[in-house]
Structures are given as structure tokens and as C-alpha cells.
Simulated scan of single mutants.
Amino acid sequence: MPRVRDPKRTRRKILEASYREFYRHGFQGGSINRIVDAAGITKGALFHHFSGKNELGYAVLDELMIPAIKNWWVEPLEKGADPLGTLRDILERFIKRVEGEVPETGFLFNGSPICNFAVEMSPLEEGFRKRLSEIYKIWSGCIGDALKRGQEKSIVRPDIEPTAEASFLVAIMEGSASVGKVEQDIEFLRSCIATARNHLDSLSASRTL
């Protein structure tokens, strides 16, 4: 019986294999040969879906990393009634995920995939820089919007600047990822997350009473 073609499934397999390859080896060090082997496809199939390596990298950012940010940050913050509580929950969920990962393939060993792309490719290629800038805008934007809603509900201190606080929190996460990649020590990440949670506590409107 002939194999039924499923272009969407094939594209997804390519993207997931590419994500793992770029995460482990960097974009420039990533191997098309390893990607096609991991995806169980031919090079012809890969280049049917993507014109080249840059387009493949763009798609990893657009189709995998942006949805991941929306799943981890945007959607919980849009649904949550208390932005500070939701942010604490996200941080707790993050550290539990890292604790459960296989070190060599996870965050503790490889760092933040977004930060890795940003450090490596933003200075070299404008298409990557623009996409990464958009990812950071989505990420910090959803936090800033949630903090503004918290101010309107008298949950968040009225004297803080939500946009600046949001950028600061993203910087904490990405900075922790970069140094954590060097330290490869879960206690270091736990300490960073605990400090971030303490900072969130300081944003509570109850601190101004």
C-alpha cells in the first residue's frame, strides 16, 4: 500500500528536529544532515518545504518559539485574575520543568533557545534580529499589559512602570539562562527564580499600604 503523504506532519517533524539541532549545536553549527536523519526524511523533502537554512531558522522562531512564549506566558497572563500570582506560578512551573529535564538536552545545559539565537544571530543577519525582537516584544508586552491590569485592580503598586518592569523580568530570565548555561547548577537557577519571585512580591499594592 503506498504511503500517504502528509505535508503538515512532515513540516512539523522537520521543524522539531531543527529546533533540537539548533538548540544543541547553535544555528551556524547545526547540521542539515543531522536534521534530515533525525526527522527521518530526505534532503529533497526538507528543501521542498524550506528554501534554505535561514528560512528553516526563521520558521523555528515563527512556528515553534512564538507559540511557546504564548503558551508559557501570554495565555496564562491573559486568563489569570492576579498577574503577580500568575507570574509566580509561571516561574514555579519553569523551575520544576528544568528539574525534570535530562541535563544534556535541556535548559540547564543548553540555556534559553531564544537567547541563544539572539546572541548568535542578531549581529549577523537582519531577518533573525527582527524576528527575535518581535519575540521579546510579545514576551515583555504580555507581562507589561498584565501588570497594567493589575494596577487597575489595585493588585499591583501604582507607582511602578509596567513596561520597564516587564523588560526587567524578561532580562532576569534570559540573563539567568545565560549564566546558568555556564554554571550548569540547578541551585543557581533556583536562587535566580527565588529572587525574581521576591521582586514580584515587592510589586504588590499591599506594599504601599
Score class of each variant (00 low, 15 high):
Ile69Thr: 09
Pro113Cys: 10
Gly57Leu: 06
Pro113Arg: 05
Tyr23Glu: 04
Ile160Arg: 00
Pro123Thr: 04
Pro7Ile: 11
Phe188Thr: 08
Gly106Thr: 05
Pro67Ala: 02
Glu78Asn: 10
Ile90Met: 06
Arg3Cys: 04
Val119Arg: 12
Gly111His: 01
Ser112Leu: 06
Ile186Met: 10
Leu189Phe: 01
Glu104His: 03
Ser167His: 11
Asp159Gln: 11
Glu78Pro: 00
Lys181Ile: 01
Leu61Thr: 07
Gly57Met: 07
Gly180Ile: 02
Glu152Ala: 11
Val98Trp: 05
Arg11Met: 08
Thr10Pro: 10
Lys13Cys: 13
Phe94Ile: 04
Ile69Asn: 02
Lys53Thr: 00
Ile114Gln: 00
Leu15Arg: 03
Arg197Pro: 03
Gly127Pro: 05
Asn33Pro: 00
Ser202Leu: 14
Ala196Val: 02
Glu187Asn: 11
Ser140Thr: 07
Val98His: 02
Ala194Arg: 12
Arg12Glu: 15
Gly150Asp: 03
Lys130Ile: 13
Phe109Met: 10
Ser204Glu: 11
Gly100Phe: 11
Glu75Asn: 09
Pro103Met: 08
Leu84His: 09
Ser51Val: 06
Val36Glu: 06
Ala118Arg: 12
Thr86Leu: 10
Leu87Ile: 09
Leu61Ser: 04
His25Tyr: 14
Asp62Glu: 15
Glu101Trp: 02
Ile138Lys: 03
Gly144Gln: 01
Thr163Lys: 13
Leu189Lys: 00
Arg20Thr: 12
Gly150Val: 08
Val119Glu: 12
Gly150Ser: 03
Gly80Leu: 09
Arg129His: 13
Gly175Glu: 07
Ser112Thr: 04
Tyr58Gln: 02
Ser112Ile: 06
Arg24Ile: 14
Glu174Met: 05
Ala68Met: 14
Ile95Val: 14
Glu152Ser: 07
Pro67Asn: 01
Gly100Trp: 07
Ile155His: 01
Glu21His: 02
Glu92Trp: 01
Pro7Leu: 12
Pro123Ser: 05
Gly127Thr: 06
Arg5Trp: 08
Gly26Ile: 13
Asn116Ser: 14
Ala59Asp: 08
Leu209Trp: 09
Gly52Lys: 02
Asp159Trp: 08
Leu77Ala: 08
Thr105Lys: 15
Asp159Tyr: 08
Ser154Val: 12
Cys192Lys: 03
Trp72Arg: 13
Val98Tyr: 04
Lys8Pro: 00
Leu124Asp: 05
Ala171Glu: 04
Arg207Phe: 05
Gly26Cys: 11
